[in-house]
Amino acid sequence: MTAAPPASAEAPEPLLRVDGLSIAFDAADGPVAVVDRARFAVARGEAVALVGESGCGKSVTAKSILGLLPSPPARVTGGVRFDGVELIGAPGRVLRRIRGARVGFVFQDPMTALNPVYRVGEQIAERLRRHAGLDRKAAAERAVALLGQVGIPAPAERARAWPHELSGGMRQRVVIAIALACDPDLLIADEPTTALDVTVQAQIMALLRRAQRARRMGLLLITHDLGLVARYVDRVIVMYAGQVVEAAPVEALFDGACHPYTRGLLRAVPGAAAPRPDGRLWSIPGAVPAPRDFPTSCRFADRCPRVTPECRAAPVAMSVADDRRWRCLRPHPPASGPEVAR
C-alpha cells in the first residue's frame, strides 16, 4: 500500500454526502425514530444502491434528502450536503431550485409521478420551461428528443399521448425523461422497476445505467432487489432496522459480506446460493423489530447466528477498513484480502 496522504489533504467533496442523518416521526405517544445517524456518500458518475427490506428506512432516507418528508410529523436532523450546499434546514426556494433541476427523481409507481390531465410531452416541456428557461417551442422540441432518448418509439406522436394511454414501462420511461430533462447531477430512483415485468425491468435498468454513465450522473438506487444491486451499481449501502450496517463495493460485498445480516440476506435469495442440504431455502429466523422496539445494542442480535453476550451489551459502532464499513462485533472476514482485525 502506498503512503497515506497527509491528514490535511481532504478527499474531494462528493456530490452527495449524508452524515449523521436521523429521522423520527411524531406519533400520539411520542416520536418514533426510524433512521439512526445514516452516513454515506455518492460521487459524481457513481451508482450506489441503498438496499434493505421493508421498514429498514431506505425510502424515508431518500425522501428526506431533498425535503420531501412533510415536517411535522417528520423530524429530520443531521447533515445532507449536495455539491457543497447543506440541504437540511435550507429554505424552500433553495430546495425547489435543486429539486427537479439538479436532482431528478424516479419513483416506483409512474402513475403517481405523472399528472393524468396533461399530455406526457407537455409534462416534460413544463419542467424545461420552469427549470431550464426554455421557451414553449424549444421545450416542446426538446421533450420529443428526450422521449426518443429514453427509448419511446415514434416520440413525436407519443408526446401527445395521455399517461393512461401508455403501458407501465412506457410511463416509467416518461418519468425518466422528466427526471433527465434538466441534465441533473444526481438521480434518485426509489424502487423504479418494482411494478414492472421482468423483461421490462431489464430494459428500464439498462436505460438508467446508460444515462447515468453517459451523463456522469450520480445514481442513488433504492431497492430491495439484490439481483438489481448486483447488476447495476458500483457500491452498496445495506440498511437494517434504521441503521447502515454495511457498505462495500458491489463485487466485494457479493464475494463475501462482513455483516451476518448481509450474508443471510444474500443467501436467502432463491437461486443465489446452493439450497440447504434438504432442498429448502436459507431463511433468516424471526422478523425485523418494529421501530419502537429497536434495541440500543445490535439491532440484528435476536436473529443473528453469531450473536454473543457483548452484542447485546452496548451500541455497536461502525468499523472501517479500506473501502468497506460494517457495524458488527463478530464480522465475517471478507472472502479475499486480509483477515479483518477487530
Partner: peptide, 14 residues
Amino acid sequence: AAPTPDPRRRDDPP
C-alpha cells in the same frame, strides 16, 4: 432477464 445476484454478469444487454 431475471437478474442473477452476480456482479460479474452486470451490464448484460436486456
